[in-house]
Amino acid sequence: MSRAAIVGTGGIAAAHAAALGDRAELVAVVDVDDDRARAFAKEWSVPGVHPTVRALLAEEKVDVVHLCTPPRHHAPLALECLAAGVTVLVEKPPALSLAEMDALIEAERASTGHVATVFQHRFGPAAIRLRQLSTAGELGRPLVATCATLWYRDDAYFAVPWRGSWDSEGGGPTMGHGIHQFDLMLSILGPWREIRALAARQARDVQTEDVSMALVTFANGAVATVVNSVVSPREISALRFDYERATVEVEHLYGYTDADWTVTPAPGHDVPLWQNGDSEVTSGHACQVEALYDALDRGEVPPVTLADARNTMEFIAALYASAFTATPVRSGEISPGNPFYTSMAGTGAPWQ
């Protein structure tokens, strides 16, 4: 059985501990707050408690580290783990910039470990089914998509010191909230080609945006709208895909089951293969953690790879670049030397 450790024992760490179940032995936790770490270790019956990743790697034999720290620590700690040959499952966003992503990719090439990013909504049964049907052409060509993450986060939420700043969180709802929905969209529609976007600071006293919107074209000809907000009192996460032969939709908040999806066939068409599943499984950490340890047991690279995550991170960088420069941005355009390569803030938000 694999030996796992959790680094960062804040709110999301419990989701990782619960998702591990009997797939791995949770042998240690790490946190700079010793009291919090020991309380978490007691709650989850974890024998080891360490103040740093360096101490963890020096004193424990671990196969997988679950990184649950604030975003600014993700890339540096993942690099430490890769240097020790340890695989990492890192919470989103996996890094703060494309430069950090490329540093991780380079380090992974020299390591026996891997880095996977938590994009758990890819792993719900309905999303897997939709990807299979879409790839097989059962739904016809994808034509139109909409992706909305309309959430609400009040001022108290942003009172946490690392939230709402470019240096510590890397961005606003584009980086930290809507990322789950449009990552799922990207995993289904494939490579994106161009983004035209805007971002605004409507209500929250933060450095970053609290709303962003984008118009996206894809290599396969599909077009999409993406909205990310943390100022929307009636919260919803929604995706809609209009194919030639059917509309496929999901509405949920933080996790979906099959019951949250609807399929509307176009006149004269049917989608019988969609009915092959009627799962009550909720898309969440358990689905992805199971897929990760299944891959490791088979000696395979775990999903979601750094290449997968980089595509989503490039989408974010391009959205900010388009919004802040008022120009369309194409895939591959943000490379070393571009200000948005080293920081999502790039040339600076208009309101700064």
Results as ranks from 00 to 15, higher is better:
residue 145 A to C: 03
residue 145 A to F: 00
residue 146 T to C: 08
residue 146 T to W: 03
residue 147 C to I: 05
residue 148 A to K: 01
residue 148 A to S: 10
residue 151 W to Q: 02
residue 151 W to D: 02
residue 153 R to Q: 11
residue 153 R to L: 06
residue 154 D to S: 00
residue 155 D to C: 04
residue 155 D to Q: 05
residue 155 D to A: 01
residue 157 Y to R: 05
residue 158 F to H: 07
residue 158 F to L: 01
residue 159 A to K: 13
residue 161 P to G: 11
residue 161 P to Y: 14
residue 162 W to A: 11
residue 163 R to V: 06
residue 164 G to W: 04
residue 165 S to H: 09
residue 166 W to F: 10
residue 166 W to N: 08
residue 167 D to A: 14
residue 168 S to N: 14
residue 168 S to R: 15
residue 168 S to D: 14
residue 169 E to S: 15
residue 169 E to V: 14
residue 170 G to R: 03
residue 172 G to E: 07
residue 172 G to I: 09
residue 173 P to A: 03
residue 173 P to K: 04
residue 176 G to I: 00
residue 176 G to S: 06
residue 177 H to L: 05
residue 180 H to Y: 11
residue 180 H to E: 05
residue 180 H to S: 04
residue 181 Q to G: 07
residue 181 Q to K: 10
residue 183 D to R: 08
residue 183 D to A: 06
residue 183 D to W: 02
residue 184 L to W: 03
residue 184 L to P: 02
residue 184 L to R: 06
residue 185 M to V: 05
residue 186 L to E: 00
residue 188 I to G: 00
residue 189 L to A: 02
residue 189 L to T: 09
residue 190 G to E: 13
residue 190 G to T: 10
residue 191 P to S: 15
residue 192 W to R: 06
residue 194 E to V: 15
residue 194 E to I: 14
residue 195 I to D: 01
residue 196 R to N: 15
residue 200 A to G: 13
residue 201 R to E: 11
residue 205 D to V: 15
residue 205 D to G: 15
residue 206 V to M: 09
residue 206 V to T: 08
residue 207 Q to Y: 13
residue 208 T to E: 04
residue 208 T to F: 02
residue 209 E to T: 07
residue 209 E to L: 09
residue 210 D to C: 04
residue 210 D to N: 10
residue 210 D to Q: 10
residue 211 V to F: 13
residue 213 M to I: 13
residue 213 M to N: 10
residue 214 A to H: 06
residue 214 A to G: 09
residue 215 L to W: 15
residue 216 V to D: 07
residue 217 T to F: 15
residue 217 T to M: 15
residue 218 F to C: 12
residue 220 N to T: 07
residue 223 V to G: 02
residue 226 V to L: 12
residue 226 V to R: 07
residue 226 V to G: 06
residue 227 V to W: 07
residue 227 V to I: 11
residue 228 N to K: 04
residue 228 N to D: 00
residue 229 S to M: 01
residue 229 S to V: 04
residue 230 V to H: 00
residue 230 V to W: 02
residue 230 V to I: 04
residue 230 V to Y: 04
residue 232 S to I: 13
residue 233 P to I: 07
residue 234 R to I: 10
residue 237 S to E: 02
residue 238 A to K: 10
residue 239 L to A: 06
residue 241 F to H: 07
residue 242 D to A: 01
residue 242 D to R: 03
residue 242 D to Y: 05
residue 242 D to L: 08
residue 244 E to K: 02
residue 248 V to L: 09
residue 251 E to Y: 14
residue 252 H to M: 13
residue 254 Y to H: 10
residue 257 T to R: 01
residue 257 T to I: 04
residue 257 T to Q: 04
residue 257 T to M: 00
residue 258 D to R: 12
residue 258 D to Y: 10
residue 259 A to Q: 11
residue 260 D to L: 10
residue 260 D to P: 09
residue 261 W to L: 12
residue 261 W to V: 12
residue 261 W to C: 06
